[in-house]
Design a binder for these strands. Sequence first.
DNA 1: TGCTGTCGATACCGCACAGGTATCACAGGC
DNA 2: GCCTGTGATACCTGTGCGGTATCGACAGCA
Lengths: 319, 319
Amino acid sequence: MDELEVRELRYFSAVAEELHFGRAAERLGIAQPPLSRAIRRIESRLGVQLFERDRRGVALTEAGRVLQREAGPALDAMTAAVRRARRAGASERSLVLATKAGASHQLLQRLLEECAAQSDLPPLEVLLCEVGEQAGLLRTGAADVALMHRPVDDLDGFDAEELLTENQVAIVPAAHPLARSVELTLAEVTDVPDLPMARWPRLDGTYPEGPGPEVHTQTDIAQRVALGTCLLLIPASSRAWQWPEHVAVPVVDAPPLTTVLAWPATSTSPQVARIARTAARLAASTEQGPIGMSRETPEPKTPGLQLSPWTPGPKRARS
Amino acid sequence: MDELEVRELRYFSAVAEELHFGRAAERLGIAQPPLSRAIRRIESRLGVQLFERDRRGVALTEAGRVLQREAGPALDAMTAAVRRARRAGASERSLVLATKAGASHQLLQRLLEECAAQSDLPPLEVLLCEVGEQAGLLRTGAADVALMHRPVDDLDGFDAEELLTENQVAIVPAAHPLARSVELTLAEVTDVPDLPMARWPRLDGTYPEGPGPEVHTQTDIAQRVALGTCLLLIPASSRAWQWPEHVAVPVVDAPPLTTVLAWPATSTSPQVARIARTAARLAASTEQGPIGMSRETPEPKTPGLQLSPWTPGPKRARS
DNA sequence: TGCTGTCGATACCGCACAGGTATCACAGGC
DNA sequence: GCCTGTGATACCTGTGCGGTATCGACAGCA
């Protein structure tokens, strides 16, 4: 009389996002009539109206908005439960680590080597993902631990071990005048009229206001920088932006970023605890070691490498 | 191919707790055969063994233990989603406050009066519960806010506003020699041979070791103290233990307890925020006002009220 | 060793409900 | 007016849930 099944909540969630029964049904892989019926049944079972079906479209009611907000975490928890149980039952007891492709390359490599070498550490599977995806992967149980960055990443509900702190560099098109600088300040890289900063989606999927292009994949932004349409700030150790058309210039006063190893606060796995300790140890030794992270900062390419004078690229290169 | 429905997870959870298909089925209100089938179907769908059906009983596998640990939060999130959506759709937009019966009586009363008086505050529904139940009520959406106590209550995943800090009193049988003291120390109330401290269930439902009786309701413990079988420590403002057979004695060096108003960290309701501000304001004014919480501390009843000399009660008065 | 009780698995049946197709009802636009 | 787009309704079919009856395996016991 009063419970919602996972399937039903998924249906609701799809309609709430699309605000269109036909498209939602298509996304769900079912026909539209069963979806309409399902939603009506949900509404009658809960005893509340979830959607306002006006002739000119579908809108969420207040109750619908509340349910939409609650649906995400609830569905995440359900999928996480089965994913984790599955993985616990698998014979191979490896640990899945999610990380932004290209980030913290050196540390990741040492961590992988360490896990392969030490028999008491679980084998590590690396799940490379795009910016901001780690949190969702942890929440749905697709990953056990993740390399994330304070303060930019969403660390809500996670425990984290701080690994290392590093400064940021600006990645600018090699042909742009800014690329000639040995170092830059924040003031110098913001509000450059012909080189706006790229805008990443926020945690809720919306984009901040600004002149720069909306991007959500790393190759996307790398391409744009190479085309000369924008610049961006990244941690110095990141390896994703090393195209010949890119130049990395330290930004001396940009807020430093701390790389952390994060895991769900509910996790009780000793494996996770062991990896966290190991990662912290490696980070500490790496930082002062001969191949220190600080030395990994890409040297700004010499201005002499520039092949052609700066010309602004197309304002918008959307596919 | 790979999702679990809420009903199925409930079935699993019941079997995991009972470790007995027959009893679990009874608890679920279904017959045993469908339950057996459901569990087998779950196992085959997930591709993992969840239970070890030995001839001498049912045991959880490693995967089963993981799923059991994940099941609680996931199911809580699902029920919370529908509860909150339902309440959001109800015409009467009241707020449900959960609190231990008897605790923070004065503050609660002023909060209720304030909500009734101020038209911009929502009407407050009070949900009285037993010790440690508030967290579950918040997690499943049965309550919007709760009065809880730092550091004894489980505040994990909640945001909280500190309201007031108070000292603890020992509630002892009026006939016991300890009742004659004007004040006591922790050392004096622990390890009293004939008056062990009552043991409350921990967050996971198990009981700490010790000589005292296991209790989980307030009337339970009140009765035991009146019978002279144990004592306990409570915050001074609590009103649940005022029987004629009880004497409250301040324990000068017991760690002070802070009453907080807690709510799910995910809550975005402006109502909740408003209540939190109001409660904090009331608590601050009450603390220094004429009817201050500090003055609410029950005066220790005078030793002269004792009617009969101390005789130890029965060691264990279990029903 | 056979009897019995316990407990989970299996067999079989009826019904509820999910999902599909076809169609309707209604608003807007040309 | 007709056409298009959108959600609701009608009707059909198959899956699968839950129920009863029964089996099979093992423990305890005389």
